[in-house]
Computed example of a mutant assay.
Amino acid sequence: MEMELSPKFPRTFFESEAGGYYNWSSADSSILSEAKVAAGKFVLKPQGSALPHYSDCSKIGYVLQGVCTVGLVSLNKKDKMSFVYLKKGDIIGSPQGSVSWWYNHGDSDFAIVFLAETSKAHLPGEITYFLLTGPIGYLSAFSPEFIAKTYRINQEQAQTLSGSQQDAMLIKLGEEQAKSIPLPHDQDALNKWTKNLDRSLPGVDVKKGGKSTTLTGGEFLLLEEIGLSANRLELEANAIRTPNYATDTQVFYVVKGSGKVQIFGLNGKLVLDTEVETDQLFVVPRFLMVSLLAGGEGMECFSVLTSARHDIGELAGKDSVLNTIPSFLQVVLNLTPEFTQVFKQMQETGTVIVPPMN
């Protein structure tokens, strides 16, 4: 079975003076629809705002830069609107159907990348958004008669309600409008929606090698609800993330830097052996093995696994699955006893991030 796994850059979906939305389309990368995952990147200019909306899939957003105020409402009737402050390094969980609006109250661009699971989406491999206001929102779609009866107003008022907002998706607020948007009172308050991945304690920290930080449903309960887990991988120059595999799909976004990625597939062959760079996305289908090698400037990746548990099978280091059969290792690798012993010792003291050899 042939797999097209080449890393892809996003394409422009929508742009205005308020910002833009950029997505990875399943038309350009069929593995997105086959694996039922999707991705998009959202940029807001200062004083830019995203109109209220919801989507048809659950996703995790990772803040690449800037700050933003977000209003969130879940479908749980007991939950009131949450008012969230986002900053670089935060992840935000977004269950399917939850409504949000966004406002950049900072003085520089705000950027966030979303990685999603789309098995229940209208179009597997795509994130579909439903706007509540503006020319492509529901207020403009329903007839004035329906709007008037729904909100107990006359039809003239219904036409004003549905037709006053002419901007689609994103709007740029004026100075007076911006003053009316309050900021969260406690910007560092813990809440059910967000957690800072950059500040979380790494599970792996190797001198001159890098760090790996994982958040699962156990550490962040919202991830359990949406069925996803997240990882931030920082590789220093020429360090390697050793081969591993998962029983669920992994989606990688290159935050910065560059390097190489190899993916081992069916029939004992590599299905991908290529360079990757900043702003590219690639997908590792379930059970396939992946390894990343940073270039001379290092590489940082944000990834999502389509499971809240983040169970990973390691092929190297002290947690390697090969360590479960030490008495059989010499036979299966067809090695001499001396080299087998050396290999076992390196495994027992090794880690999943390996710095470059001197």
Rank of each mutant, 00 (worst) to 15 (best):
residue 133 T to V: 12
residue 72 L to Q: 07
residue 120 K to E: 11
residue 91 I to P: 15
residue 141 A to T: 14
residue 94 S to I: 09
residue 89 G to E: 01
residue 86 L to H: 01
residue 55 S to Q: 15
residue 74 S to D: 01
residue 107 D to K: 10
residue 97 G to Q: 13
residue 97 G to C: 07
residue 93 G to V: 11
residue 28 D to L: 03
residue 44 L to T: 00
residue 77 K to H: 15
residue 100 S to M: 04
residue 116 A to Y: 00
residue 82 S to E: 15
residue 71 G to V: 06
residue 110 F to N: 00
residue 47 Q to T: 09
residue 22 Y to K: 09
residue 142 F to S: 03
residue 38 A to W: 00
residue 113 V to N: 05
residue 60 I to K: 14
residue 112 I to F: 00
residue 36 K to A: 05
residue 106 G to S: 04
residue 28 D to H: 12
residue 53 H to S: 06
residue 147 I to V: 13
residue 34 E to S: 14
residue 77 K to A: 08
residue 60 I to N: 12
residue 56 D to C: 03
residue 33 S to P: 02
residue 63 V to M: 09
residue 151 Y to S: 02
residue 151 Y to M: 02
residue 103 Y to V: 13
residue 43 V to H: 02
residue 129 Y to M: 13
residue 37 V to G: 02
residue 95 P to T: 04
residue 86 L to S: 01
residue 104 N to G: 10
residue 26 S to A: 06
residue 82 S to M: 13
residue 140 S to E: 09
residue 132 L to G: 10
residue 75 L to V: 12
residue 88 K to Y: 07
residue 74 S to E: 02
residue 89 G to P: 01
residue 87 K to H: 04
residue 85 Y to I: 11
residue 117 E to I: 06
residue 30 S to E: 10
residue 112 I to V: 04
residue 77 K to G: 05
residue 126 E to N: 12
residue 88 K to C: 03
residue 91 I to T: 14
residue 36 K to E: 14
residue 69 T to A: 11
residue 92 I to N: 05
residue 125 G to V: 00
residue 49 S to V: 08
residue 61 G to P: 07
residue 98 S to Y: 07
residue 132 L to W: 05
residue 131 L to Y: 11
residue 114 F to L: 09
residue 140 S to R: 14
residue 37 V to E: 08
residue 93 G to Q: 13
residue 64 L to V: 12
residue 83 F to E: 07
residue 108 S to A: 14
residue 90 D to P: 01
residue 71 G to F: 07
residue 56 D to W: 13
residue 57 C to I: 12
residue 67 V to G: 04
residue 58 S to R: 15
residue 20 G to D: 06
residue 73 V to N: 12
residue 100 S to C: 14
residue 139 L to P: 02
residue 30 S to F: 15
residue 96 Q to S: 11
residue 33 S to G: 03
residue 140 S to W: 11
residue 46 P to D: 09
residue 111 A to S: 07
